[in-house]
Computed example of a mutant assay.
Amino acid sequence: MEAKAIAAVLEEMMWLTAQTVCRRQTLGATNLLAVAVHPENEPGRAGGRGAYGCPGDCGSARLLHPMKGQQKEKRMLRITIELLPGGQEEGKRVIATADIARASDGPTGALGDYRVALSDAILGEVGEPTVVRRYPRWASSVWDLVARCLATALNQGREALPPRPARPEVTVRTNDAGYRYVRLDEIPEPTRTFFDRKLAGSGIPDHGCAFAHDWFDFLNGHR
Rank of each mutant, 00 (worst) to 15 (best):
A5C: 13
I6S: 10
A8Q: 15
V9F: 12
V9P: 05
L10F: 11
E12Y: 10
M14S: 12
T17Q: 15
T20V: 12
V21N: 10
V21E: 13
V21Q: 13
R24T: 02
Q25R: 14
L27Q: 11
N31D: 13
A34H: 05
A34Y: 02
A36H: 07
E42G: 05
P43S: 03
G44H: 08
A46C: 03
G48Y: 10
R49P: 00
A51V: 05
G53I: 11
P55E: 11
L64W: 02
L64A: 02
H65T: 14
H65S: 11
Q70F: 12
I81R: 15
E82P: 00
E82Y: 12
L83E: 14
G87K: 12
Q88K: 15
Q88V: 12
E89T: 04
G91W: 07
G91C: 04
K92E: 07
R93V: 06
V94K: 15
A101R: 08
A101N: 15
R102F: 12
D105P: 01
D105W: 11
D105R: 14
T108Y: 04
A110G: 06
D113C: 01
R115F: 02
D120R: 10
D120G: 02
A121F: 04
I122Y: 01
I122M: 09
G124T: 06
G124F: 06
P129M: 04
V131G: 00
Y135F: 13
R137I: 12
S140E: 09
S140L: 06
V142C: 08
D144H: 09
V146Q: 02
V146K: 03
L150N: 00
A153M: 05
L154E: 00
L154F: 01
N155T: 02
Q156L: 09
Q156C: 04
A160M: 11
P162S: 09
P163G: 01
R167D: 06
P168F: 01
E169V: 04
T174M: 05
N175S: 02
R180H: 02
Y181L: 10
V182C: 00
R183N: 03
D185Y: 05
P188Q: 07
E189Q: 14
T193M: 09
F194I: 03
D196Y: 07
L199T: 01
S202N: 12
G203E: 15
G203P: 12
F211M: 14
D214Y: 13
D217Y: 15
F218P: 02
G221A: 13
G221T: 14
